[in-house]
Each structure stands twice: as C-alpha cells, then as structure tokens.
Measured scan of single mutants.
Amino acid sequence: MAAGGDHGSPDSYRSPLASRYASPEMCFVFSDRYKFRTWRQLWLWLAEAEQTLGLPITDEQIQEMKSNLENIDFKMAAEEEKRLRHDVMAHVHTFGHCCPKAAGIIHLGATSCYVGDNTDLIILRNALDLLLPKLARVISRLADFAKERASLPTLGFTHFQPAQLTTVGKRCCLWIQDLCMDLQNLKRVRDDLRFRGVKGTTGTQASFLQLFEGDDHKVEQLDKMVTEKAGFKRAFIITGQTYTRKVDIEVLSVLASLGASVHKICTDIRLLANLKEMEEPFEKQQIGSSAMPYKRNPMRSERCCSLARHLMTLVMDPLQTASVQWFERTLDDSANRRICLAEAFLTADTILNTLQNISEGLVVYPKVIERRIRQELPFMATENIIMAMVKAGGSRQDCHEKIRVLSQQAASVVKQEGGDNDLIERIQVDAYFSPIHSQLDHLLDPSSFTGRASQQVQRFLEEEVYPLLKPYESVMKVKAELCL
C-alpha cells in the first residue's frame, strides 16, 4: 500500500493539533497551500530580480507567473513527485505547466533550498508574528487579574506546605514575570531571523556568478533584492546548502521555554482548584465526569500541561538535527523538520489560546482563602504575639514557653481530632496574655502579614508589564474561544 493518505478522510490519521486544537490561522501558515504558494512567490521574486539585473526574462513571463501564483494543481504535483521522487522539481514542473512561456526560467540558477529553506524562514517569521500578540493578550488578562487582587491576602506555599502570606495578585505576578520573559525572547528570536537568500547549491553562489558572467556586484544585488522582497532586513552571508540548523534550535528553545512557563502556571491553577481557592472557567453544560456528576475538573489547565510537556520535548529534535548536518548538509534534517517545526508552533498556539481562555474567566473564592488563612495564621502570628507581650512588660522566655504549650495543644486538636485551630481562643482565655487581649485582632490582621506584596504588584505592572504590552494595544480586544 502506498504511503500517505487522504487526510480529510475519517479513515486516515490526522494530527489532533490540526484537527482538534490549533487555530485556523496557525494551521494555514503550515498548510501545503501556504507552503507551495510561497515557493511560487519566491520563484517570481527571483525572476523579477534577475530581470532587473539584466537576464533575458520578459515582462510577459513575469506576468504569467504572477497570474498563476494561486493556480496550484495539487493532484498534478503529487503525481509528479511520485514520478520524480523530488518535491521541488515536482512543483517546478507543475508551475511550468500553467506558465508555459515562463517554464524555462522558473528556478533559474537556484537549488531546492532556495524555495525550501527560504519558505521555512518566512513561515517561522509569520508563525512567530501570530504567537506574539496571543502571548501579549494572556499577559494582559493576567495583569488585569493581578491588579484587581493585588491586596487580597492568601496563604503562600513553599514545598506545598503553608508559608508566609502573600497576595493573590502577587502570586499571579510570578506567572506574568515568566511570560514577559517569554514574550521578550519570542520577539528577540523573531527579529534575529535572517533570510537564507540566493546562495546556490553549497552556499557559494557559483551558479549565479556564472549567470551574471562573473559580476560579483550583481550577485550581491540579486541576494539583497530577493531578501528585501521577502520582507527581511538581512540575509546570511555564510550558508551551506541550507541555512544553519542552529536557527531551528533557537526558535524551538524559546517555544519550549514558553511551554515550561505555561505548565507551571496551569499546575498552580490545578492545585488551587483542589484547594477550592480558584477555578478555571466551567461552562453551564460542561460535564466533569461521566460517573461523578459533582466533579469540576480543571480540564483546560490539564490540557495545557499535557501539550506543554510535548512542546518542551520537541527542542531535542533540532538539537540532534543540527549535530548531524555533515559538511554542507545531509538530508537527516528533512523529514524531522517537516514534523517538529509545525508541531512546535501548533502546540504553542494551542496552549496560548487555551491559557487566554482560562485567564479571561478565572474565578476566585475569597471566603475559602480566608478560612485557610484562619487555619494557619495563628501559628504564624506567634512571633508577633511574643513581641507584643514583651512590649507590655512580659518575659520573652516565659511567653515563648506559654505559646509553645498552647500551640501544641491547638495542633493536637487540628491533627488528632480534625478540629479547627483554636490557638487564639486559648490565648484569649489565658490570664497571662490579658495585657494584649485587646491587640489580638490587630495582630491577626492578614494584611499585616503580606509585606509589600501589593506595592510590588503595582510597581511591576507599571514599570515592566504595561510598557512591554504597549506595541500590542491594537490587538488586545480579541477574545479566545474554545470549541473543545
């Protein structure tokens, strides 16, 4: 049975990233139509530049190519590739079939990587351009969430054990800070992308030097003109047959890092959902379990974690691919890159769409948070109580021993009897502590235990987050809708 299948058929496997999760716009960027249309555009740009620099290419040939950029006979191309065992030459023939007058000058002087690699770089750039505003929107939604809850005390956790208090907004800023680093890295790697350009079979530009009869300047002009037509500021000066596969490492490393950030955020949300302090959106008709109707599973956060793990592992592909590119190139890269580049971007696209949807509907339960604080705060307040007693004339050592005994009794009630923490009640009825009984409410005010959390939130948002989001103001209103 021949390899390949009808990918629109229910009898043929289709990647869930495309069929179930990723956005239509990201799927289109990695589609065959987008790819092969870009090949034709690159052939047109090459012909236009070659004509401008004096090669015998007519206006009629150029116009014929322009008129057929979208006229792609995919069936013919597939048949040609089956016959020739070469995808680029299959599309040269297919393009030439609908451009008979231009057929002889299509791909003039070029090698397969002229269309293959340059198209990949265009796709990487455009895919990054799709991700950047999506990530900015996630940051914006979380920034709104953090600002609104900047002063809401909550129990902090280290080692997932109760620690000092923080605020809900401050905790959210930990998430935002990681995503801001990801946004900066995505922008950097996007701006650092260079075009492969017009380089020939081993990167020496020998074929173009021959076409222009040894004119170095025209060869350099050709490279520059096509690079500018493709919208790049610069091209690699040095290439082998391909652009260095280190570029793929750079791009997928940034995406993998984004995956790590999203995994951490969504894990926190899942843990908070278990504590009943916070939940992701839950639709009115949504079913959490087929057997347990009360369940409210954090399905979206779980999906993000599941896909983020996949995204983090994909960076190993370009690392290994770059390491086995012998001399000017081997074909070890080809099949692998067809999979890992598309999957990385479709996965990143999915987790950003999902995280935006989550961040637009996060639900906080202040009463649950308050109750958990009441359970733990008495123990945390013991040092403040000791200091207040010393100020009232008591002995630190005597007070410490009193607190120690009462704390152990209260802990026994919590752990052995399943009761509430009654340390404060014990202190309130103990005559030894009568000098500070009137101060206990103040000493137990949760806001006095959150330090500068709310001020940190305000400063972080104003100095770091809002300036970073400013270039994306025009796209901030787009909502994230999930079908599944």
Score class of each variant (00 low, 15 high):
V226P: 02
S12E: 15
R196V: 08
R404W: 11
G200A: 13
F145P: 00
S454I: 10
S395Y: 07
S261H: 01
R85M: 15
A291N: 04
E360R: 03
E79C: 13
S306W: 02
L331A: 04
A18W: 10
R459Y: 10
R20E: 00
Q161E: 04
Y13N: 12
V251W: 07
S447G: 13
I237S: 09
D216E: 10
E370W: 08
V115R: 02
T167W: 02
L271W: 02
D73S: 10
R270E: 01
D117R: 00
F212Q: 06
T202R: 01
Q221H: 12
Q408V: 09
L482S: 11
D317T: 07
T242K: 02
R338N: 00
M89A: 08
K170Q: 05
M387P: 01
T350R: 05
Q428T: 14
N118C: 12
K224D: 15
E50M: 07
E360Y: 06
L314Y: 15
K229L: 09
K402C: 01
L130C: 12
L271H: 10
L423T: 03
L331D: 01
A308D: 01
R188K: 10
Y472T: 08
F433Q: 03
C180Y: 06
R452Y: 07
N185A: 14
L44M: 09
V478Y: 14
D59H: 09
Y13A: 14
A47V: 08
P133A: 14
A206E: 05
L135H: 09
L142G: 02
L346E: 09
E250D: 13
R404M: 09
S448Y: 14
I62R: 06
F157R: 05
P318I: 02
T313M: 11
H263L: 05
L275F: 07
R329P: 00
M225A: 12
R234D: 10
M89W: 01
D430T: 12
D398R: 13
R337F: 02
G104K: 15
D398M: 14
S438Q: 09
M312A: 06
G156C: 07
L165M: 06
F449K: 10
L341F: 15
A392L: 07
L352S: 08
L319G: 02
L346S: 11
R404G: 08
Y472P: 07
Y13V: 15
S407P: 00
C113V: 12
H217P: 11
F36E: 10
A431G: 13
K82S: 11
Q177E: 13
A260M: 06
A322L: 15
Y34Q: 06
A47E: 00
F345R: 03
F449T: 03
I427N: 03
A3P: 05
G104E: 06
T38L: 08
R196A: 13
E80A: 15
E280L: 00
P10Q: 15
N421S: 12
I385L: 15
K82N: 13
S438R: 09
W45H: 13
L211F: 09
L108P: 01
S395H: 09
T313K: 05
L69F: 08
F460C: 07
F212K: 05
K284F: 14
V138Y: 12
P293E: 00
I358W: 04
D6P: 07
S434K: 13
A322T: 12
Y472L: 15
D32W: 07
D422Y: 09
A230Y: 03
S447A: 14
G231F: 06
I403T: 08
V413P: 03
G203M: 01
K477C: 12
D73I: 05
L406T: 08
V465E: 02
I436P: 05
D178I: 01
I106A: 07
L55E: 12
R372F: 03
A22Q: 09
K147E: 12
V368K: 05
L42K: 05
V363R: 07
R374Y: 06
H442I: 13
T330L: 03
